[in-house]
Simulated assay, not measured.
Amino acid sequence: MSLVGEERKGIILELLNSEGQVKTVDLVKKLAVSSETIRRYLEELESEGRLKRVYGGAVKINVNGEEPSYLKREVLYADEKRSIGKAAAALIEDNDVIFIDDGTTPMQIIYFLMNKRNLTVLTMSMPALHLLMEYKNKELFSGDIYLIGGKVNNIHSRVSGSIAEKMVALFHADKAFISIDGITQKGITVFDAERGQLVYRMMENSKQRILMSDSSKIGQTQLYRMAEWRDIDIVICEKEMPREWKKTLNEQEVSWIVAY
């Protein structure tokens, strides 16, 4: 017997609660219905305030409007983040000075640096620092590591604040790899203004600014506008850019790399 609509929507919500995300293509296979039917279910659930539709599926609603903790962010979209990290690492050349922010997506770059030589890595992320130290102790990383010092945020395992901004001003990077919490055709947003200000300062001191984002951030807008499209050189995502964004990004000379 086929499942009725309400039962199917119940299954979607169960998957969402356990995984934090659902993808339209996966739901089509699991529920044996068309993509149009899945989109209708997601629209109905969104109108009921039970999920947030994003490009290619839906995510759980953040009822508090607050940034999820590092541990929660780490497990979401893990496969997509790893492919994005691999694509980003391919842009890094020997002798580069690179900035890796505190996002769980830029951190994936570190796993693909083993064949790079004489790098200098600047980071505000405690987990990234620990992983770089581990790799260097095992002789899997060649280069220098700088931790941007400042006020410690224990929930998000990063530093920020005015002291960190002053330290960032001392460095110049070849490439800044940044993560965000929402991107729309109008620009780039994050939950935390303090973090956003620090990352933007590093972007100002970098020759090339590379935005790394899984597709769940597409179409979302958060509290603080961190940057405009004119501030970005490259986007790396596991999905193609929305078609309606093409004109805007072309005008701002932003390249979009699809990570596989």
Rank of each mutant, 00 (worst) to 15 (best):
T120A: 04
E93R: 12
S216M: 06
A88D: 07
T120N: 06
T221W: 09
E14I: 12
L76F: 08
A173G: 01
L16P: 07
T37G: 06
L249K: 11
K186H: 13
R158F: 11
S142H: 12
S18I: 06
E14K: 09
A90T: 14
E46F: 11
E244D: 13
L76H: 09
H172Q: 09
Y55N: 07
Y77C: 08
V152S: 08
S157P: 04
A32S: 13
R39Q: 15
L51H: 02
E240I: 12
I188V: 15
R117C: 08
N115C: 05
I188F: 07
A193H: 13
V190W: 01
N153E: 14
V254A: 03
I100Q: 00
M167Q: 07
G219K: 02
T248V: 14
D192R: 00
R53T: 15
V199R: 00
R158E: 13
G161C: 10
S206T: 15
K247E: 15
G49C: 07
G150N: 06
Q222W: 14
Q21H: 11
V4G: 07
K81S: 06
T24D: 06
I61H: 05
Y200P: 00
R40C: 08
A169E: 06
I155G: 05
L211N: 04
R39A: 03
G161H: 12
V4W: 07
T123I: 01
E66A: 10
